[in-house]
Design a protein around this nucleic acid. Structure first.
Length: 316
DNA sequence: ATCTTTTCCCGCCATG
DNA sequence: ATCATGGCGGGAAAAG
């Protein structure tokens, strides 16, 4: 049985964010060896809805599709101060109660918050709206610095295109990094973006685009993940003091060297677990995570599973 | 799970 | 004056 994905359309919706969801989940993918999702677009009422850009669309399904979905997605709304329809919030609560994963893109977090689904949870939204979300729904712990928040059954993403990151994250969780990478490749986007939305807020990319040595280092590092890469050594390689290296690195990637390396190494470990039969001990070593204990530790922290369980899920 | 050692990394500030 | 640099301290996190 394919997983059912329902995305909500409504008056004044943003076609881009709806489109992300349709592109990821709604496009047929016969080239992939997995059962793809069933996507439906649903709306509260049957009539035409006007979208940003001055055109209209009609959804083929009603809110019951949202309630019975495995994944219910709310794209951003144009008016975050408006109260979402009670029928919509009720449908989202019902979906959640049934065990569905409830997902928002951008300002869609306001709808989830209105439904009470974010109470006491961490959530992401567009940086422009973070303050308002936190103010209006004090029980929501707004994280301004990430592209998305995965809280298990409730997932929220930051501004517009961060919805792509979150959708790919969902695919990665359901089908593994290999499949998610294939989808990303077909969409011609990065399979995994590092750093939070902070890097997109004020700093235009050209100002922080890594130049010369640093760029070369960033490109070279993925090939040497198995070796220890202490900051002091890295800084020396690009002829900078540690302090300057940290600053430049942060400006270029939005994270610190250690965090960036950890992400790369976890990604490598996942690949090895999916594509090879290497024992966990070797996976840990090849990925540069050192001991299997260390690998397990970080795996649990970021993926919520163990390496063995992860391999079982994506390898049969 | 808990402890110890090591490494990281960010604010502060003098310097060029 | 502004700006990048890089040394230092020490709280935080990782590694063992």
């Amino acid at each position: 049985m394919p997983r059912k994905v329902a995305v909500l359309a409504y008056e004044g919706l943003s076609p881009f964010e709806l489109g992300i969801v349709v592109e990821v989940f709604g496009l047929a993918r016969p080239e992939l060896p997995v059962e793809w999702y069933d996507l439906v677009v649903c709306a509260e009422r049957a009539g035409p809805l006007s979208a940003v850009g001055g055109f209209t669309l009609t959804a083929a399904h009603g809110l019951e599709a949202l309630v019975t979905a495995d994944i219910a997605i709310v794209p951003g709304c144009t008016d975050v101060d408006a109260d979402p329809s009670p029928a919509v919030t009720a449908a989202l609560r019902a979906a959640h109660a049934r065990g569905a994963r409830v997902v928002s893109v951008c300002s869609g977090a306001f709808v989830l918050a209105a439904a009470g689904l974010l109470d006491g949870r961490e959530a992401a939204t567009h940086w422009r709206y973070a303050e308002r979300l936190a103010h209006r729904y004090p029980r929501v712990r707004v994280n301004r610095d990430v592209l998305y928040v995965d809280d298990g059954d409730v997932l929220t993403s930051a501004g517009s295109a961060a919805g792509i990151d979150l959708c790919l994250h969902l695919v990665r969780g359901d089908h593994g990094a290999g499949i998610a990478t294939a989808v990303a490749r077909r969409m011609v986007v990065a399979p995994h973006r590092e750093g939070g939305q902070a890097q997109f807020v004020e700093a235009p990319l050209p100002a922080t685009d890594p130049d010369g040595d640093l760029r070369a280092l960033l490109e070279a590092l993925p090939a040497e993940l198995a070796a220890p890469l202490p900051v002091a050594r890295l800084a020396a390689r690009v002829h900078m003091s540690e302090r300057t290296f940290l600053r430049r690195f942060a400006a270029a990637t939005g994270t610190s060297p250690a965090r960036w390396l950890l992400q790369q190494r976890l990604l490598r470990a996942r690949e090895l677990l999916e594509r090879t039969d290497l024992p966990v001990e070797r996976v840990a070593r090849e990925a540069g995570l050192g001991s299997p204990e260390n690998l397990r530790h970080h795996f649990r922290r970021s993926l919520g599973t163990s390496p063995q369980a992860y391999r079982r899920t994506f390898r049969d």
